[in-house]
Design a binder for these strands. Structure first.
Lengths: 337, 337
DNA sequence: CTGAAAGCGCTTACAG
DNA sequence: CTGAAAGCGCTTACAG
């Protein structure tokens, strides 16, 4: 059976195809009786508007694209659980608003705008990632120049083009460090890249340093070790710290995966947590609740984040001004510190 | 600046719009020199084919839809990490093959076919879920009747319409139960719904019983407690088991989340794992490596699964016959049994 | 409130 | 190898 079109319905209903189109979209212009008749027939025929045709004509797609960009050095098998969680909440937020969501891991192309908005596949883009933000900045500048509608998860607009929804990383970093300091720890190490290549980590580090300062402690370079987004990186960084011989009684990790890797290194080294070394994370991924001991961390509300991202993008597409916004993080105290 | 169309390029290249269209799709019909000239101009203009127009004309979308159906009783906040992992691998598999992926949690509608394939948004559907399979069976029958292209993650075709890629749940359930029995355990409980409402769990249970039989043990009804897909359900089921007073020295959980919940209940009850009770899971989610003690389980290869699902669907769309296939699960021994 | 007509931007027979 | 033309299935001024 061939697919029904609006002309088939028009014929059966004894009205014009224009009227069918109007009736199906609940236009107030159409007589209620006519509308009901048309909708009844459409239902009987299992009719659905052809999205390609309607999008082509109306020049919008009611579809958003989620682009997950990652560090290309990643082996590709495991996605950071934090982003997977964001993906889940964004999918839900789109569905709630009647939008479809196109998902892509855009390693391949370096022209997101062209690939999605120019080809009319999506009305706007949501960017999510943990790649190198220095490379990334160029792309954002290009996107903005082309007038693409996009929002980004991450840091505010001082550092990168465009609007962003993000966690208040400075506040989060400060809060958990204060918590560690309150336990009487004095020599705090920070595991995570502290540079504009990873601005979210950098902000957390700045919050970390601010808390130290409150306690009259100067941040020590030797206690900060670079590490990116993975358990392996956390393991390596902790090893490096241990091998360096610098004394420390606590580790603040820039993310939970780093903390998990660091805990493994500490245990291999015969150190117990938190007796010898306190450990703190950031993100509150599912695993944080199950490490031994369970990891104290900073929770980012991914559900709320997904909603804000989708709302901001929709506002932008509608031509409204969109402000970057920060979500308040929440301290989660468990047993690791 | 208005978006460039193929007519703009045709004008600049001094050829017809038809030729532009051919040149852009690398048609062998077009002179190489002409093709290069056209492609150069297209690049300069930042031109991208309008997907809505080309899809409308050619009647296919190069897009696949992933439908995640869940138990509506779920609170909606947390998606089972196993499915999130599948989602990641499916996204990658689609990208590798030049397809876009539309993601949807189809709670709202009950007419997937109409929503995606009839509206020409997608060429085919991938179904992934943990809802009630009895309700689900009707939908599948309808999908098949309408000639929709779809593949499903889960159990083979005996029980449900359509082709499926799934884990060999029987073999996995049998293997891990054998492992538990080898440790000398005699009174094994099974936590997970054993009925056609949850056929994957049912198959795991059947494997479980087969292993018991090999060891001369008859499955005892009182040692099987229903539970669905969540940590909470696992906790409740273990409580129920404990309260029933039936003796047991091991728990085989139908999935890791159930195992995690059960471990919590056992500990609250003052029982130690594995000394008093051995615990086994199924799925190998990230958390399994971090429970205390780390959970022995059965790993499902989600990367391979995603690839097979996408390949099968593409074959089906291309008109090839597609067989249901099972992936071999892999026993992962940690410390919980 | 309704209809006839144009047109969104492509792909693809058809003719040369 | 190339071009003129039709048409995919809608939405939306325009006219009544």
């Amino acid at each position: 059976m061939k697919k029904a079109t609006s002309f088939d319905i028009a014929y059966l209903a004894g009205v014009s195809q224009s009227t069918v189109s109007r009736a199906l979209r609940n236009s107030p212009l159409v007589n209620q009786e006519t509308r009901e008749k048309v909708q009844k027939i459409a239902k009987e025929l299992n009719y659905k508007v052809d999205k390609n045709a309607s999008n082509l004509r109306s020049q919008h797609s009611d579809t958003l694209a989620l682009l997950l960009f990652e560090d290309p050095t990643d082996d590709g098998s495991a996605i950071n659980p934090f982003f997977l969680s964001m993906l889940g909440s964004i999918t839900r937020a789109c569905a709630d608003r009647g939008y479809d969501l196109l998902v892509s891991f855009q390693q391949a192309s370096n022209d997101w705008h062209a690939d999605f908005e120019d080809s009319n596949k999506a009305d706007g883009l949501i960017l999510l990632g943990y790649g190198d933000y220095v490379d990334f900045a160029e792309k954002l500048t290009k996107l903005s120049a082309q007038g693409t509608h996009y929002v980004r998860w991450g840091v505010g607009e001082d550092q990168l083009k465009g609007s962003a929804i993000g966690c208040d990383n400075f506040a989060g970093g400060k809060e958990i460090t204060q918590h560690v300091l309150k336990q009487g720890r004095k020599k705090l190490a920070f595991l995570g890249t502290a540079s504009s290549h990873a601005p979210e980590f950098f902000d957390r580090y700045k919050g970390h340093c601010a808390a130290l300062k409150e306690y009259g402690i100067n941040a020590d370079n030797k206690l900060q070790i670079n590490a990116l987004y993975t358990e392996e990186a956390g393991y390596d960084a902790a090893k490096k710290l241990l091998d360096s011989g610098v004394e420390f009684d606590a580790i603040c990790a820039a993310c939970d995966l780093i903390a998990v890797g660091a805990m493994r290194a500490l245990k291999e080294h015969g150190l117990s947590i938190p007796e010898n070394v306190a450990v703190a994370g950031f993100d509150d991924i599912a695993v944080a609740n199950f490490t031994s001991p369970p990891l104290s961390t900073v929770k980012q509300d991914t559900k709320r984040a997904g909603e804000l991202l989708v709302e901001a993008l929709l506002d932008m597409i509608a031509g409204k001004a969109v402000e970057s916004r920060l979500i308040e993080p929440q301290l989660i105290v468990r047993q690791s510190c």
